[in-house]
Design a protein around this nucleic acid. Sequence first.
DNA 1: CTTTGGATCGTCT
DNA 2: GACGATCCAAAGG
Length: 199
Amino acid sequence: MPVVRKRLAGPAVEVAPTLLNHLLVKGNRVGRIVEVEAYGGRDDPASHAYRGETNRNRVMFGPPGHCYVYFTYGMHWCTNIVCGPPGEAQAVLIRALHPVAGMAAMRAVRPAARRDTDLCNGPAKLCQAMGITGADGGTDLLAGEPGTLGLLDDGMAPPRRPGNGVRVGISVATGRRLRWWVEGDPCVSKARPVALTAS
DNA sequence: CTTTGGATCGTCT
DNA sequence: GACGATCCAAAGG
């Protein structure tokens, strides 16, 4: 079933954990969201939107339900789901999926993955596995267009008590516990320890 | 198993 | 000119 847009109307810190166990779909490839991070706008030094709107982050400032896809480290794509009111640039980074369907197609584009649990256990890995690139940036995930990237709710509720901890891979605002995951799922990414600085 | 360093380029300072 | 909301292969225990 489609996701009601109203459910994405709140700030990322509230929406993020509720997206756990939802499905990300593109063509025949399907993955269940098992790890997310919340990024705020002007109040979050770690957010791409912290210094205001630019060509790169423009989608973040747009309506909820669309996806913000960015390119980083000269080679990787990562996907966010925009939420909150337009103009606030709230977004939820999808950090890991548990593959549900289309694993053969995922494997074909991810030869480095030794096991199925390695196909989507990282924000750039899942983009590669799902075939998400800049061309998918700005897509309305709730439009239900066949073949395009979409967000679905198959009825599995988010965990009542998800894992929670600090965000991964950032160098500022490292003390905020804005990462949530499905406790015990083998596809949750392995976070490398990061030195704590300011909050 | 864990740790380390290199890859690689768009974006913003 | 510096630095990433990262990943992987290689080396070491």
